[in-house]
């Protein structure tokens, strides 16, 4: 199945796509701040984003002794850029920036880059806590990445294509993939939280190691690194829409609006989960990943494959 129902638009629209992604990230930051404020019995939180932004932009950059500045900066800047590359293959209703024939693999490649980026951020500062954070992320990565890869495989098998547009259109007049691949969807969301260093997977940045990989980050370096995490979270939420949630399918509203609404809902759930799920210790999650998630997702893939063969 190589035909695809999406239209590739001019590269200038990348500006709009980037703006939308930033908008989602702003939503995530604000929602998180609002929930934080409420958890402390206060209200508001709406002013958090501009104040954080202003503070970090005005802050003077700190540095450490014998820091590997090149690798350090590459880590932070890479985190900021990565999510923008991800959204290039996500169709917004009928339009997409790049109708890549291996769009799912493209997404996977970018999310693997995070392994290098977080570790480089932890390494570059030449600081113990920072380095421990970097390795914590790799330990989490070793446990979430394989299940995530197999989770990405499931919709691709069902649609018979690695093209994101084709995966979305395979669900147009059918049940959404989330209905008969719930395990793959859940593990996909776990993976998104993993590569965004978010919620239960924020051990690399945890307070018990003084902020871990981000311990020595300051000023604009801190800004791009953490903005990158929110952008990745938003991009991950957006990618779940064509993959599992039927793309632009939905009544009354146009397809692009449904994509945005679904993205917003998934993103809100991910942000909300941060307060509901405890931090997962990397060593403990290692055995959860390898003894529960991996077998579960392989069985899910088997079911999907059998159904795909049976349907012809």
């Amino acid at each position: 199945m190589t035909d695809s129902a999406v239209v590739t638009v001019s590269a200038l629209w990348a500006v709009i796509a980037g703006t939308l992604l930033c908008g989602f990230a702003v939503f995530a930051v604000t929602l998180d701040a609002g929930l934080s404020a409420r958890a402390h019995g206060a209200g508001g939180g709406w002013f958090t984003l501009p104040s954080r932004l202003a503070r970090l932009l005005r802050q003077r950059r700190r540095t450490t002794v014998a820091a590997d500045t090149l690798l350090w900066r590459v880590g932070g800047i890479g985190m900021f850029i990565g999510a923008f590359l991800m959204v290039a293959v996500i169709p917004l209703g009928r339009w997409t920036l790049a109708d890549l024939d291996v769009g799912v693999v493209w997404f996977n490649t970018i999310d693997v880059l995070v392994w290098a980026l977080v570790w480089l951020t932890g390494w570059g500062a030449n600081s113990t806590h920072s380095l421990v954070g970097g390795y914590r992320f790799l330990a989490h990565g070793l446990a979430y990445e394989l299940p995530l890869m197999f989770a990405l495989v499931a919709p691709a098998i069902a649609a018979g294509s690695l093209r994101v547009g084709a995966v979305a259109s395979a669900q147009q007049d059918d049940v959404w993939f989330v209905v008969w691949m719930p395990v793959a969807f859940l593990i996909y969301l776990i993976g998104v939280m993993g590569f965004s260093v978010w919620g239960p997977f924020a051990a690399a940045l945890a307070t018990d190691i003084a902020g871990g990989a981000g311990a020595e980050l300051s000023a604009v370096d801190r800004l791009v690194f953490h903005a990158g995490r929110y952008l990745f979270l938003a991009a991950g939420a957006a990618f779940s829409v064509p993959l599992f949630l039927g793309g632009g399918a939905g009544p009354w509203l146009p397809a692009w609006a449904w994509v945005l609404i679904k993205t917003l809902v998934v993103l809100a759930v991910l942000v909300w989960l941060r307060r509901k799920v405890p931090l997962l210790r990397p060593d403990r999650f290692m055995s959860i990943g390898w003894t529960i998630l991996l077998p579960a997702i392989v069985v899910q893939d088997l079911v999907v494959s059998v159904v795909a063969v049976w349907k012809g």
Binding site: D101, V105, T109, V112
Partner: peptide, 24 residues
Amino acid sequence: QNYLGLITILMMVMEMAVMAVYMV
């Protein structure tokens, strides 16, 4: 060869990250 190209990048970056684990 989009598939081969992306898989090469994916595998090599992951491999280098894992190499960092072995390093320690």
